[in-house]
Amino acid sequence: MITPFNFIIMIFVLICAITAITVKDLLSAVVILGAYSFFMCLLWAEMGAVDVAFTEASVSSGIGTILMVVAIIKTTRRSKD
């Protein structure tokens, strides 16, 4: 575990999380959530949990993002907040 590297990734993760819930366009929010998942995966690989990291990279930021994009295509992109 390298502490400065840890801090930098944590700041990126925080920025992604705050942006994902404040942006108005839902498609952008979902894509930013995918970026959040990848930064999280980087943080776990840095903490030594390699199996968790590649499961997250394939399952949560791959399949999860695809599921959400399909749901948004089938419903609507606009949101009020």
């Binding site: 999380a17 994902a20 819930i21 839902l26 929010a29 979902v30 959530l33 959040y36 949560s60 999860g64 959400m68 749901a71 948004i72 419903t75 949101s79 009020k80 907040d81």
Partner: peptide, 11 residues
């Protein structure tokens, strides 16, 4: 928005 709630649950 309900999709925003799902995103919050994920986080």
């Amino acid at each position: 928005n309900l999709v925003k709630k799902v995103i919050g649950m994920n986080i």
